[in-house]
Structures are given as C-alpha cells and as structure tokens.
Design a protein around this nucleic acid. Structure first.
Length: 558
RNA sequence: UGGGGGAUCGUCUAGCGGUAGGACUGCGGACUCUGACUCCGCCAACCCAGGUUCGAAUCCUGGUCCCCCAGCCA
C-alpha cells in the first residue's frame, strides 16, 4: 500500500489537489525561511527536505529566505553556516536566495497602506503596558488609548518613527483588529518596533523593524510563494497571516499549512539550550559531533543522504512526533554500508605473540576493501610475530557461545592465519597483558586446507607497523529520552556524563595513518569512523559515527 | 473555566465506508573469513462510550488524555 520510493503525506496530497484543480498553472513555490540566529539542526533538516523536496517532485521552485527581522540576534556568521548546511544536504536554491530585510522598503509601504485604511495605528504604550492590557487566555484585553488616532496622525507618527525621532522602544505600530479576540494573536498585534541596532544586512538604514507576523506573509506574497509551510506552533498565527494578506494589496496570495515539528529521543534542539551547551563548554563547539546541529552531524560523519532518508521515513503529519534514535542510526548505517571502505583498528589493544612465527620475518597479506563490492579493490596488511587484537576478543574463562580467542581455542585472524592460544601472561596484579599463540602456516589468507572450520574471526593489526590514533566514542548528550531542561540547573542533572569517551591508545593499520579529515571507514566489527579535523600528521583522530549492530553484545547482556 | 490542534503496534507512519499495511525496535532462525551486511519468520495497534450503516480506524454525538498560544522573538 505505502510505497517507500514515493511517500505521501497530507501536504503532498494538498499540493496534488491544488495542482489538479488548476490553481497553480505556473507550478508551486515553497521556501525554507530560517532566522540567521543560530545553526541549523536536525529539525530544520525536516523542513528543508519537505520544502525543497516538494518543489523538486512537483516541478516547482524553492527559495532560501532569511527571516532576518531581528537585528539583535542575527549575524552573517549564521547566514553563511546556514547556506553551507543546506547545500551540504544536497539542495539548491539556485537564484532564489532572499532576505526578508531586502523587503524593508516595500514592507514599510504596506504598513502605510494599513495605516491609510485605518487598519494600523501607532501606540505609545510601553511594552509592559501593552502586556498589561492584552488580557489573558480567558479574559479580553482592553483597547489602547491610542487606538483611535486619525490616519493622518498615525501616518505622521510612523514616518517619525522611521526617521529616528523617537527613542528605542517608545512606540510601536499595531494592527487594529480586536482586543477581545479569543485568539491572542489578533489582539492588536505589534507590527513594527523601534530598535536602534545595526542590522547584518541593512546596516543602520533602519531604526524600525517589522515583526514576524507582518513580515512573513508579505515576504511570501512578494516571492510568489504558493505553499507556506511551517510548524504547528504557528497555527494560531495563521489567522493573522491571513488578515495581513487580506488587508494589504499584494502581488500574490500564499496559504500557510502547518505540520508537527520533529522531536528526537535524547536530543534537544532549543536554540537557547544549544547556545548554553556551547557557552558553558559542555561541548566543544556548535559542530561538536554530539550536537544535533547539521554541522555536528557532518563532523560526526553522517552522510547527508542518511538525513534526507531519515526525513523521508519519519514522514510529515500533524501528530506529536517523537522519533526513536534507532531510526536515525539505521539510516546512517544503511547509507554508509554500501560504499564505505573497510579497515582494521584495535581500540583497546592486547598484544599477542605468535611463538612459531620467526622473529625477523614479515609479510604482506591482501585484504578486501569491501567484501560486498570488489570495485573498491584490495589493500595489503603487514603481518609479523607481534600483533594487537581487541582486548574484548580474548577471554581466559569464556562464557557459552563466546567464539573468540581463549586458552586452547583456535580462531581466524581475518585475511591472515588461524591461530591457537597457548598461554596467557599476566602482570603482578593479575591483569592479562599478553597472549601467546601458535599459527598454522598452512592457513595463509585464512582458510585451512584440511577444511576445518573455526567459529570465530577477529581483526588485528601488526604491532610493528600499526599507527597510534585517538578514537572518540559518542553517546547521547542527555540521559533522558525526553530531556526536560528549563533552567541551567536542570541542565547539570540532565546531561549524560559519558557522552564522550576518548580512547587514546588505538592502534590502526598503516593505510589509515594518512587518511584525510572527513574520510570515513568501517573499522571492521566496530563501526563507522570518520577522520576528525583535530587530526595531526602524527596522530589521526577518529570520530565514531555509529557503531555496528552487535548481536553478541546484546546476547551477552542478557 | 478562552482559542487553536492531535490521538492507529514500544516508536514513526499508511489508510480517505469494504481483509488494519510498511519502517524502526524487540524476539527467533538461516547465511557468514565482520557475532556486520543480507535473507526468512514471529510478537505487536485503531483513546473511551454511544449512534448511523449490510459493513466504521474512517461518518455523527458525547467524553478522556496530550500539545500550542498571554515577546516590542521567530
């Protein structure tokens, strides 16, 4: 019934119906309208995929528009980061790169139109007074004493607001709607405020700035947006969106449709909280691989296709959407598995010595870069008498169904030889520090000529040739699947103290020593790892993008 | 106790008066030189109560629970 390649949702159905009814002979237009006051996160990815995806699939257009009407918190740094993130996800706004601030002059004219038709007035009430007269959820507000100023007076006052004759915050332009409306957004909402603040795009040209509810519908109309998609918390704003468009002469008539915002288990995307994480140095930066930002995910090694796939899978509805982390993990693994080269890395090294392998001998063994895809070729792995294996792959007293190395057991060193454990060496405290083995020279490459089978295959590196590296393992930033953080005090309790684990004695195969930042590998039997920009020539740093599924770990936990 | 929304397997989602399907998770198995990948199987849902209808997740009525709104933020 549902076809994964062509997902449907209520917005696609709406667009299909609109197009079918011939409402948009020129095709549809959508837009992704971020405010450049922070970095994009996984929630934005959903909106980006929806808006750009719709335009792509229905032969329409999608713009990137910065909703930059609040100079207090916006900056060019964010503008650039947002552009980079959208491109990284794989979307192209072509020539449609817009700023709401480019419309300031036009918006001013629209405001004057509202004043002239008696639908807007200049109000001298202070912010506190406006709040005090707005009423409550259950009681109506009261009219401003300035509500009935003449059009001429309003017009003159508004011009003076613009020309800088009034101090910061002293007056606002308000829509004249209904102070008794049950919808709070319709109780004479503020349209313009006075703010002496340099704007990242318009500089000091303006000291009055339009509010979102005024700017957004008009920007949409100016750009010919047909479907203005936003999240559910703007549902009540729609009445105002429509009111503005109905009371101003606009070049087109867009319609707003809301969908639910994404909430992902163990993550939090509130800009305020993310900013605190960065400022208090809970994380290293906005692109810390633990951050739910697109830049964090990029640095972590998530391929953009995985995020697009994720957005497709979670769908678009008006339900409260609380998505499990496993869905994202699965998308990342699925995107990475087909083309990612394999390599060997030993994260917690245990030395093994092959007693019957000559001290001075070394050889090269051939390994597949991808067992499922010959086109990725092969590489050679140096082999000698001393190797490292994963500490976890040896147990002196193994439990049932442990297939790896143990005293007297034979296992396969992948792509190398079958080895049998002969002796365990411990230090004075009883810690296992070395394992002795013998190898079967007849099993070069990993197969026994006599056909005997071994149940376990483990990875390894040559102790003489391996390079030391650092590995960073990541877990969610929060302990609770639905983190509730309202104060900075909450934050301390909510944080997962083991969100970052650094392993600094990781031994990697030689081919990894010069891997460029950003490149990604599957460390066999461990997971996908991405070379971090913190790498130096002497030492690579690998971020664990996502672990492999581990059914042994699961079984063992029971 | 105003207004606006939403309730389908554990989670996400399909359904649009005619056998409740898919994905992720979980469980079991096959395969395996990655305990990976892949493949197969299993568990698992219509918020409640009435009503309309031959037939209701879908339509109607009444409840219940959850979310959003009182910025000169977006």
């Amino acid at each position: 019934m549902s076809d994964q390649s062509s997902p449907t949702n209520f917005i696609r159905q709406l667009v299909t119906a609109d197009l079918g009814a011939g409402r948009y002979p020129q095709g549809i237009t959508t837009r992704f309208p971020p405010e450049p006051n922070g970095y994009l996160h996984i929630g934005h990815a959903k909106s980006i995929c929806l808006n750009f995806g719709l335009a792509e699939d229905f032969g329409g257009r999608c713009a990137l528009r910065f909703d930059d009407t609040n100079p207090d918190r916006e900056s060019p740094e964010f503008v650039e980061a947002i552009k980079a993130d959208v491109q990284w996800l794989g979307f192209d706004w072509k020539e449609r790169l817009y700023h709401a601030s480019d419309y300031f002059e036009q918006l001013y004219t629209f405001a004057v139109e509202l004043i002239d038709s008696g639908h807007a007035y200049v109000c001298d009430l202070s912010a506190d007074e406006v709040r005090g007269t707005r009423g409550t959820l259950t009681t109506p507000g009261v009219n401003s004493p300035f509500r009935d100023r003449s059009c001429d007076e309003n017009r003159e006052l508004f011009e003076k607001m613009r020309s800088g004759e009034f101090p910061d915050g002293s007056r606002v332009l308000r829509a004249r709607i209904n102070m008794a409306s049950p919808n709070l957004h319709l109780r004479d909402p503020t349209l313009y405020r006075i703010r002496y603040q340099t704007h990242h795009n318009t500089g000091d040209n303006w000291c009055i700035y339009p509010m979102y509810d005024f700017t957004h519908p008009l920007s949409d109309a100016i750009e010919g947006v047909t479907h203005s998609l936003c999240t559910l918390e703007f549902e009540d704003n729609r009445a105002l969106y429509d009111w503005v468009l109905e009371h101003v002469t606009t070049p087109s008539r867009p319609y707003q449709t809301e969908f639910s915002r994404l909430s992902l288990e163990y993550t939090m995307v509130s800009k305020r909280l993310l900013t605190i994480l960065v400022e208090q140095e809970v994380v290293g930066s906005w692109d810390d691989p633990r951050m739910p930002t697109l830049s964090g995910m990029r640095r972590r090694g998530y391929p953009p296709e995985a995020l697009v796939d994720f957005c497709t899978r979670i769908g678009v509805t008006r339900n409260q959407q609380n998505v499990e982390l496993s869905v994202l993990d699965n998308c990342v693994r699925e995107a990475l598995d087909p083309g990612t080269p394999r390599a060997f890395a030993v994260t917690r090294p245990l030395k093994i010595v092959i007693e019957n392998y000559p001290e001075d001998e070394e050889e090269e063994l051939e390994a597949l870069n991808h067992p499922g895809d010959e086109s990725l070729g092969t590489r050679s792995l140096p082999f000698c008498r001393e190797l490292y294996i994963e500490h976890e792959d040896f147990q002196e007293d193994p439990p049932k169904k442990f297939f790896r190395l143990a005293p007297g057991r034979e296992v396969r060193l992948r792509y190398a030889y079958l080895v049998t454990c002969t002796e365990v060496i411990k230090d004075s405290s009883g810690e296992i520090i070395e394992v002795r083995c013998t190898y079967d020279p007849e099993t070069r490459g990993g197969n026994a000529p006599d056909g005997r089978k071994v149940k376990g295959t483990i990875h390894w590196v040559s102790a003489r040739h391996s390079a030391q590296a650092e590995v960073r393992l990541y877990e969610p930033l929060f302990v609770d699947p639905e983190p509730h953080v309202s104060s900075e005090d909450d934050l301390k309790n909510a944080l997962n103290e083991t969100s970052l684990t650094t392993l600094d004695n990781v031994q990697v195969e030689p081919s990894l020593a010069a891997a460029p930042p950003g490149s990604i590998f599957q460390f066999e039997r461990l997971g996908y790892f991405c070379v971090d920009r913190d790498s130096t020539d002497a030492r690579r740093v690998f971020n664990r993008t996502v672990a492999l599924r581990d059914s042994w770990a699961k079984a063992r936990a029971k």
